[in-house]
Nucleic acid binder design. Structure first.
Lengths: 144, 144
DNA sequence: GTCTTGCCTGTTACAGTGTAACGATCGGCG
DNA sequence: CGCCGATCGTTACACTGTAACAGGCAAGAC
């Protein structure tokens, strides 16, 4: 992610090797990764990376909007949009291939805002995760 | 929940004591309960209920739409609506008092359906969880 | 240079979450 | 009675996440 690298320059000092490599691992994978999976990929023979370090790196990355946490999977994916941290994304999680697509819909945001205002609820963070079957996997099943 | 009791009759054999008591515990609490919290409340001196039994009861209850799982909290709340299992609910989770309010919005469902159709994604289950501050807690803060 | 400060990382330990596997129990049925 | 299916108890285990403390490293103050 070139965007991440660019944002990294702004944080210069803060974007350490561990955090950069954590982001790389998450970005290379096409599906959500658990913290322990990341730790395993970051580890080399004789150089083990503890899961707790990964968690701290992930905290940093999520705070700066470079990765997202998938609550229903306890896993992490790279952020594919340049949206601000306060904005809400919709995650489409495919049960067949495990891929996660991140989309943003102004329409959904509007209806959410409307419903929240009606309820007198002041939102801080939003989680919208849809499990199902992505278009590619639907096509694959029709063929087979 | 009288509704749950009524639905229980239909499942006659399936609605065992453990499952009923699990539902009671979840319904009595005004906030999401973890599986181990439930197990603790179900346990009596000399009669310990293991968490794994609670998980099985919760699986049953969620399948039949009597309780919901709050993915962002790893906790469970009673279902407050008679909606079908396929319908999507919106959970408003208050960070101050920990309460969870369940609402249904046709507007949100429409916009979600629209976005999903555009993406060619076939949804199976939907998770919409908003963290923030409920109306009651906002009023309380203004006073204090 | 040295000292202090603050941040990041390593390590250990531990609490919480969830599942697999096996055995026992109970009710219904031939 | 014996069989069968579902539920439940128990143990064991894997995964997820946090607390606490120690060491390293860069930057600024003296």
């Amino acid at each position: 992610m070139a965007r991440a690298e660019r944002l990294a320059q702004d944080l210069s000092l803060q974007f350490t090797t561990l955090r950069r490599r954590t982001l790389e691992v998450v970005a290379e994978e096409g599906r959500p990764l658990g913290a322990y999976d990341i730790a395993e990929r970051l580890s080399a023979p004789g150089k083990r990376v503890a899961a707790v370090s990964v968690y701290r790196a992930l905290d940093f990355l999520t705070e700066h909007g470079l990765v997202h946490r998938i609550a229903s999977r306890n896993a992490f994916v790279p952020c594919e949009h340049g949206h601000g941290a306060g904005e809400s994304a919709v995650f489409l999680i495919c049960r067949s291939c495990g891929s996660v697509d991140e989309t943003i819909s102004a329409e959904i945001e509007r209806s959410l805002d409307h419903t929240l205002a009606q309820a007198g609820f002041k939102p801080a963070s939003r989680i919208v995760e849809i499990e199902g079957e992505c278009g590619a996997c639907q096509g694959r099943q029709e063929e087979g």
